[in-house]
Design a protein around this nucleic acid. Structure first.
Lengths: 133, 133
DNA sequence: GTAGACTCTCTAGTTAGGGGAAGGTAAAGG
DNA sequence: CCTTTACCTTCCCCTAACTAGAGAGTCTAC
């Protein structure tokens, strides 16, 4: 299967699929005459897998790890679950940070008149030494 | 004031402060003989301002905009408030996405045994075509 | 006068691809 | 068989916001 069909089946762009080849994530057979890539069904499955994992916020490095577990018949689900729990924890840290930031910005916005005058508590907060977190 | 003191006062690294000069955010007087940068009090204030805005999640581009408002005596607080409201909205979009992702991962983790056996609903979800969002 | 702590510029690397050019190839229509 | 069009290839530069390190010049203190 050529690269554009492969990309479509996996819900990825051609650029991304080519990139995944160059970094060694999914490397299809490549016709030595023409240089054209030829994706097998197994390659497609791997592309779909990586696409899903990426959409679940796993990094390329983590996808590499997950992919090797995916292909390992003797894996333990423990390993995968641990990776997932770590990812959940990362996301929760990020949620905490963003929530705090949102609240601080919302507070600043609430005390700013938002009119045509130049005085502005938001700018004041930025120019004082108060750290945001 | 030399660059390391300036950086310390603004809570930034020397590298970052130098970077802010090269991209035109805060450009101090530079001794033509030695090439050494010399930060004025006004430069320090600007560095602190940008540092705060960055910690509040504003991009460099947005910091540039805020900085010009900060320096504009005839600004209206309306403009600053609008930027802030937009930033709040961006953060909330991100919060929504991350929360959804977290919930989906948490669900997957909850149905995975996490033992030494190879069957794993998490990997199954990634290899099926179910989109995460 | 020299050691050590600073400073400078420059290059390259980081994440995960996107944009576009120049040139070869495949498939379809006439 | 030939041409057009669509597709493929590699290559290089671009993104955000820095960080790391090399090699070389400068400042300060003893």
């Amino acid at each position: 299967m050529n690269i554009s069909k492969a990309a479509r089946q996996a819900g990825l762009t051609v650029k991304t699929v080519r990139y995944y080849d160059t970094i060694g994530i999914v490397c299809p057979y490549q016709n030595p005459q023409t240089g054209y890539r030829d994706y097998s069904e197994r390659d497609i499955a791997k592309l779909q897998f990586v696409g899903s994992a990426r959409r679940f916020n796993f990094s390329i490095k983590e996808c590499r790890e997950l992919l090797s577990l995916y292909e390992d018949e003797n894996r333990s689900s423990e390993t995968v679950k641990a990776l997932t729990m770590q990812k959940i924890s990362d996301i929760e840290d990020r949620l905490t940070d963003l929530t705090r930031l949102r609240d601080k910005l919302a507070h600043l916005a609430s005390v700013c008149n938002g009119d045509s005058r130049p005085d502005c508590p938001i700018l004041d907060a930025f120019s004082s030494n108060n750290p945001p977190s």
